[in-house]
Simulated assay, not measured.
Amino acid sequence: MEKIKLRINPLDWLIAAPNGCSKARASEILATFSSPPHVYKFTGPGELLRGTGTDSTGKQAFAYGGGYWVDGSVISQIDANLSQYTGWLSAKELQQSARAKYRAGSAVCEDWNDFSQFHKMKIPTGETFEGLAGAIKSQPIRSKMNKNDPKTPMLMGGFEQVYLKVRNPFWIYEAAPL
């Protein structure tokens, strides 16, 4: 997917129409990035991926309403890295490893999403949209853990996160779980 950096302040972009949010909410969104993100114009073809399983209370994540997505090419990178273990690990162990690598890189706390379902956003050739993109900040394995305690197990983050204010529902499809 092609992306072009736009000369727009991320905070201004988040609070502007369409679908702008409050400054407080914008600050929460910006805090999910490990370094200052940038606003980009994306052009298809391409894919974004979102875990849409349930949280620890049984609430289903929104495929169409959620703003946080990860570049879909991450899955092929994970598969390529794990392919060296084919024959050494069972198919189930490889699947568990892929899910663990995705959770670590996307820094999605275990109590936020069980990754029982995924959705892909398939961006057609030539279609464009704006998004806020940058590296995902690390998170504790569970959201209630103290991220400032050096003993707290952390999810490393680091995958590119794309935050979208506007999503085309006709581009979103259920994807196979990892």
Results as ranks from 00 to 15, higher is better:
residue 3 K to D: 01
residue 3 K to E: 03
residue 5 K to Y: 03
residue 6 L to D: 04
residue 6 L to I: 03
residue 6 L to Y: 03
residue 9 N to F: 02
residue 11 L to P: 02
residue 11 L to T: 05
residue 12 D to R: 12
residue 12 D to M: 11
residue 12 D to G: 09
residue 17 A to Y: 04
residue 17 A to M: 09
residue 18 P to K: 11
residue 20 G to V: 04
residue 21 C to D: 02
residue 21 C to A: 12
residue 21 C to M: 14
residue 22 S to I: 13
residue 23 K to W: 07
residue 25 R to N: 11
residue 25 R to F: 12
residue 26 A to Y: 09
residue 26 A to T: 13
residue 27 S to A: 11
residue 27 S to I: 01
residue 31 A to M: 09
residue 32 T to D: 10
residue 33 F to G: 04
residue 33 F to A: 10
residue 36 P to K: 03
residue 39 V to M: 06
residue 41 K to T: 10
residue 42 F to A: 01
residue 42 F to Q: 05
residue 43 T to I: 13
residue 48 L to Y: 09
residue 49 L to W: 06
residue 50 R to K: 08
residue 50 R to A: 04
residue 53 G to L: 09
residue 54 T to I: 06
residue 55 D to S: 02
residue 56 S to W: 08
residue 58 G to V: 08
residue 60 Q to I: 06
residue 60 Q to W: 00
residue 63 A to H: 11
residue 66 G to K: 03
residue 66 G to P: 06
residue 70 V to Q: 05
residue 71 D to V: 11
residue 73 S to N: 15
residue 76 S to R: 15
residue 76 S to I: 15
residue 79 D to S: 10
residue 79 D to N: 14
residue 79 D to V: 07
residue 80 A to Y: 08
residue 80 A to V: 03
residue 81 N to G: 14
residue 81 N to R: 14
residue 82 L to D: 02
residue 86 T to N: 13
residue 90 S to G: 14
residue 91 A to Y: 03
residue 93 E to Y: 06
residue 95 Q to E: 14
residue 96 Q to I: 05
residue 101 K to Q: 13
residue 106 S to Y: 02
residue 109 C to L: 09
residue 110 E to N: 10
residue 110 E to L: 12
residue 110 E to V: 01
residue 112 W to Q: 15
residue 112 W to N: 11
residue 113 N to D: 06
residue 116 S to D: 13
residue 117 Q to W: 02
residue 117 Q to A: 14
residue 118 F to C: 03
residue 120 K to L: 14
residue 121 M to A: 11
residue 121 M to V: 06
residue 122 K to Y: 07
residue 122 K to N: 11
residue 124 P to K: 07
residue 125 T to Q: 09
residue 126 G to I: 10
residue 128 T to I: 05
residue 129 F to D: 02
residue 133 A to W: 04
residue 134 G to M: 08
residue 135 A to T: 09
residue 136 I to W: 01
residue 137 K to I: 02
residue 137 K to C: 03
residue 140 P to D: 08
residue 140 P to W: 01
residue 141 I to L: 12
residue 143 S to W: 05
residue 144 K to D: 11
residue 145 M to F: 11
residue 146 N to R: 08
residue 148 N to T: 13
residue 150 P to W: 07
residue 150 P to R: 08
residue 153 P to F: 05
residue 154 M to N: 01
residue 158 G to M: 08
residue 159 F to Q: 11
residue 159 F to I: 07
residue 160 E to C: 12
residue 160 E to L: 13
residue 161 Q to C: 11
residue 162 V to R: 03
residue 162 V to K: 04
residue 163 Y to S: 07
residue 165 K to H: 01
residue 165 K to S: 06
residue 167 R to C: 15
residue 167 R to I: 15
residue 171 W to K: 02
residue 174 E to N: 12
residue 178 L to Y: 12
residue 178 L to I: 05
